[in-house]
Every structure is written in structure tokens, then in C-alpha cells.
Design a protein around this nucleic acid. Structure first.
Lengths: 241, 241
DNA sequence: CGTTCCTTTGAACATAGTCAATAAACGTGG
DNA sequence: CCACGTTTATTGACTATGTTCAAAGGAACG
């Protein structure tokens, strides 16, 4: 054990940003320092309201959140999930408004994000790559909802989520922690919770996956990839993902 | 009539960008000059391939294009349409890759886009606002596909498209030019062309809209807005849209 | 332990898809 | 301007995927 208040040597945020762009020692230091400025959100708490001004850029240290929209009659669409290491509220606009509500799914800890200052080109690049990845994931979500069957949606989402968790060092092999209820999964995939339940069962029967909400195991990743037509995200022609 | 090669006093591109951010005379001049650098694409021509490097930023002068993804088995999802005045290939990344194929729907004319240089803060701001709007439209597309019925999807899409066309001065009242086949509409809305056909018919019967592909008339915009739960996009807390 | 939330199951139903055929519109060359 | 070929729109009958409603088990938690 090191000192009581020492930061761990790595964190999802630093692991992820280092995977998106090469970071200098000073940049890693700045991140580690910013991570000390934490804020806790209980599960189910609204972190940002749709349409509200975005005041500061932060990152997820631990826990899952989601971006969602509620229709006038109460239907909900979850746009995407925010995982450890993901960024929140990074915008090039001067007075940006939140395009969607952000809701803590589990207990969430966020931290401050160092400003992409002049001396830190790596950080700035990492933020840009992160935003571009988010856009890719959103486009994948459009395709998922528009053209995939329930089984394909689940396969595709699990594969994408595995990749995203892996970027932040949150996976062990093909095991992924997924702290979601079937209802949350349903609202993200444009289905009902009843149908998610039945679809998961049939996928387990088919040997495609094992485990349940909480912790999934992609038992046959290759078959899942073929089923969903999955390809992992690539944002730039540089060497990084 | 003015000189044969004189540019028209306004254009969809300049109308739209001026609506997104205040532009100086010099900026309007730069736009008008760039618009002379045109390129024509016949209908159905692939303008950019998914995954290909993006080489230059351009804008749509006239015609409609779409961004689409094709699944391994041939299914297609249209992510969004690119309308006159929309920007293409604007990215903060150094070596960006196209996240989707861009296909000319009708004959399309594009033009060069002035670099957002130091002396042109308005242009740079307009590009940023444009990108933020695109993100909003993509999130709206997710909600549309995930949680709306066929009729709601059509209503919502028509209202959004009306707003977008109006930004570029392409509407006359609630009439909007829509040069799409029902199959294209279906691939954008996650439906089949047969179902789009039947849904349009029922909406005409209900007095919600009139006209057909080519030119639609939103006969009862208020009822359409209630039906779809529609709200127009707002990106910043500043006065602009 | 009791309450609450979550998962699971069944039966009936609805929305949208599939397949196939016809009609209408459009573009082209003569 | 008209005939022809092609694309697009329309229609019908049937099917399938996913939804709704309701209820019963389980698991988690104070």
C-alpha cells in the first residue's frame, strides 16, 4: 500500500486517453492532478438536464451514466452510455446547451478535465479523437436501431461496449461488466424489456453469450461479430484507433 | 441581368451560414469566391467512400446527398441527408476518415469552403455551430428510429427537414422540395418502402400533409408537431439558433 | 423478514415486413 | 410528339417480429 491519498498508478481515464493519443509526462501529471477534483452522483440522479447550459468539462472516473431523451408521453430513448474514462461536456462552442439529459445509472464519480492548453497538444488531440469516436458510436447506434433485428442489436451493442470498455482497461478477456437492468438495455436498443429478456435467453441457448446483467461473457465473439456485421471503430488514418 | 458569370446575390450556403453566425463582409466575400470553385456529381454517384481519408472540406451548393452505411447482407441505413448549404468533410482531426459513405441522391454541385482562418471568426463559429447542429440531428435520428412509430417518424423527419431547408432559404411556407423516392425515405427511417407508401397515404387521408415525393406540403404543421413531439433544434445559449 | 425492484413466463395482439403483381410516372431515342 | 423500357408507386394477402398486459418467481436490501 502507498500513502492513503495517493492516486492509483493508472485509472480508466488515463488508460483511455493514452490509448487515443500519445501523452507526455506533464500531460499525465495534469490528468492525475485533475482526477483529484472529484464529485459523486448517486444512482438515478440527473447530472445534466437537456437544454441546460454546459458549464464545465468533466470525465467519468467510475460508474455508468447515460444520455437520454424523454418523449412527451413518457417513452424514453437512451442515446448512449457514458463509461469510465469517457468525457462529458467537451464542446468547441462558447455557450453550449446540453443536447440530452445525462442520468447516473449507477453511482458515478466524475472528475475535472484539464483544459486543452497550449503546452499540451497530446491532451487536446485526445479530446478531439474522443469526440470523433463518440460520433462514430452514435452513427453505429443509428444503424443498429434502423436496420438490425433484436438479436443483432444486442450482439452489436455488446461488441461495441466490449471495445469501449477495453479501451479504458475495464475488460478481462471477453468478460464485461454491464451494470444495467434489462429495461435500460431495452431503452437503449429501441426494444421492450420483455423482448430483451427473451432475446438474451435465446442467445445464451445458442451459445453466443453467458452471464447476465452485471457481468456478461461473450462466449463466441466471432459468431457474434458475424451475426451483427460488426467492425470496430477507426477514426483517423494515423496509427491510433 | 447582371454579368454572365456573376454569382447570384444569395445562395443556400451563404443564407445558411449567415443564419448560424454573424458574418462580416469579408467573410461573405470569401464564401462567394469559394463558391466559384464548383464540382458536379451525377445522381447515384458515390462522393466519398466509408473509411476513405477525407481530403478537403466542401459544401453542398445544390442537390441532395446522403450519408449511408451498407450491411454485409445488403441492408442499407441512411444516416442523414445533406441539403443545400450543408458542409462536408469539416473535421478537427488531422487525418480524418469518412465515417460513412456519401452518395449523391440527385445531381449534386459542391463548392470549396474557405479555411476558417484567423481573420474570420464568424466563419469559424458558423462551422462549429453547423457541426453541433449535425450532432443534434443525429441524436434526433436515434430517437426517431428507436422510439417513434412509422407515422411519427415521417412527421418528425418532415418537420426537421422543413427547418433545415428553411435555414437555407429552400422552403416556401410549409412547402418543401423533397427529391427522394419512397425507398430512400424508407432506408432513412428504418422502414420498408411499402410501409412508407401506406403511411404517407394514411397521413394524407388524415389531412396532415399533401403532395408527394418531389414536393410535400405540411398541411397541418401544428398537428404534425404534436404527433411527433417535435421541438426545433437549439445548440447554444446565444441568440442564434 | 418484508418490501421493492428485477427477471421471467404466457397468451393475445399490433405494427411493420415479405412477396408478388399491377399501375403510373419518367426518361430516352426515334 | 410518341413508343418503349425502366424506375417508382400502389395494392393485396400473408407472415413475422416485437409489444402489451398480467402475473409469478427471485434477488437485493434495509
Amino acid at each position: 500500500m502507498t500513502k492513503a491519498d495517493a492516486l492509483p498508478l493508472s485509472s480508466p481515464l488515463r488508460t483511455r486517453l493514452r490509448a487515443l493519443a500519445p501523452l507526455s509526462g506533464a500531460e499525465m501529471q495534469a490528468l492525475a492532478a485533475a482526477e483529484r477534483d472529484q464529485r459523486r452522483w448517486p444512482a438515478r440522479r440527473e447530472m445534466i438536464a437537456e437544454g441546460a447550459p454546459i458549464t464545465q468539462a468533466r470525465a467519468i472516473v467510475s460508474g455508468w451514466a447515460c444520455r437520454q431523451r424523454i418523449l412527451p408521453d413518457g417513452r424514453r430513448q437512451i442515446l448512449d452510455f457514458l463509461l469510465p474514462g469517457d468525457l462529458i461536456g467537451v464542446s468547441p462552442l462558447s455557450n453550449p446547451l446540453a443536447p440530452a439529459t445525462i442520468l447516473a445509472v449507477t453511482e458515478v464519480v466524475t472528475c475535472a478535465l484539464p483544459a486543452a492548453a497550449a503546452g499540451m497538444p497530446g491532451l487536446s488531440h485526445a479530446y478531439t479523437v474522443s469526440a470523433a469516436l463518440t460520433e462514430l458510436y452514435t452513427l453505429a447506434q443509428v444503424t443498429r436501431l434502423g436496420r438490425l433485428s433484436a438479436q443483432e442489436r444486442l450482439a452489436d451493442w455488446l461488441l461495441e461496449t466490449r471495445d469501449r470498455l477495453a479501451l479504458a482497461g475495464q475488460t478481462v478477456g471477453d468478460n464485461l461488466p454491464v451494470p444495467l437492468t434489462q429495461e435500460l438495455l431495452a431503452d437503449a436498443l429501441g426494444l421492450t424489456s420483455v423482448h430483451v429478456n427473451r432475446t438474451l435467453q435465446s442467445m445464451r441457448r445458442d451459445g453466443l453469450l453467458a452471464g447476465r446483467s452485471g457481468m456478461f461473457l461473450l462466449a463466441d465473439r466471432q459468431r457474434l461479430e458475424i451475426l451483427a456485421g460488426y467492425r470496430s471503430a477507426r477514426v483517423t488514418a494515423d496509427t491510433e484507433p
